[in-house]
């Protein structure tokens, strides 16, 4: 992955905006921002952002590549779409934020310990495996992602909710052993592989 980062730096030199336009989902919209800030103000998690969307757009234009791609900010997006609804220039801001996060991840620049990134990765690995989420496995992995001790701790904290879910049939207690994947697991894997190929080719991640 580090190689991909180096090759992108080579390819776009100082022009981070062009790099974003070419490689980031909906990146071609970044240039349309007029710095009104309504996205940043409308975001329910706004106060938690180090760099709110409109500032990220300006940083992209100013070529602050590392600062943007290593930022925790775009990982804050919860897809509420408030920003998209309000943007006077109709920028798909939510999508751009996810696109940037994804791109940073692909380049290996995303903050390793960012919880959203880690959740997303665990979630993705989980769902991609069988084509369907294994809820118990997902929960376990999330609880234990920081080690056994904290996993047990978290499990205890959540035990009432867990028991409640078991009682109401919302959680399969045997999920770890008897998870039902989707019908054509092979087909799903084949489809995903193809999708990766297409995306990589489109974005120039492979020669």
């Amino acid at each position: 992955m580090g190689d991909l980062n180096t090759s992108m730096i080579e390819k776009y030199r100082n022009d981070f905006l062009k790099e974003v336009e070419a490689n980031v989902e909906e990146g071609q919209w970044v240039k349309m921002c007029m710095q009104c800030g309504v996205c940043s103000g409308s975001c329910p998690l706004g106060p938690s952002w180090e760099h709110p969307p409109q500032e990220i757009f300006m940083m992209i234009r100013a070529g602050r590549r590392d600062e943007v791609l290593k930022s925790e900010s775009m990982w804050m997006c919860t897809s509420c779409y408030n920003c998209i609804v309000r943007c006077p220039r109709e920028l798909p801001i939510t999508h751009i934020m996810h696109g940037l996060a994804n791109y940073a991840h692909r380049l290996g620049l995303a903050p390793k310990m960012n919880p959203t990134r880690r959740f997303a990765k665990i979630f993705w690995d989980n769902i991609a495996k069988s084509g369907r989420v294994n809820e118990l496995e997902l929960s376990m992995r999330l609880y234990f992602m920081d080690g056994f001790k904290s996993g047990v701790q978290k499990g205890l904290e959540m035990k009432d909710i867990g028991i409640g879910m078991l009682k109401t049939g919302r959680l399969n207690p045997f999920g770890l052993f008897a998870h039902k994947g989707c019908k054509d697991i092979k087909g799903i894997h084949k489809m995903l592989k193809k999708a990766y190929e297409i995306e990589d080719r489109k974005k120039g991640f492979v020669a």
Binding site: Q35, C36, G37, V38, S40, G41, G46, P47, H51, P52, Q54, E55
Partner: peptide
């Protein structure tokens, strides 16, 4: 009024 002053990012 809620928002962000974009000159230097002030909420």
């Amino acid at each position: 009024l809620h928002g962000v002053d974009t000159e230097g990012y002030h909420r």
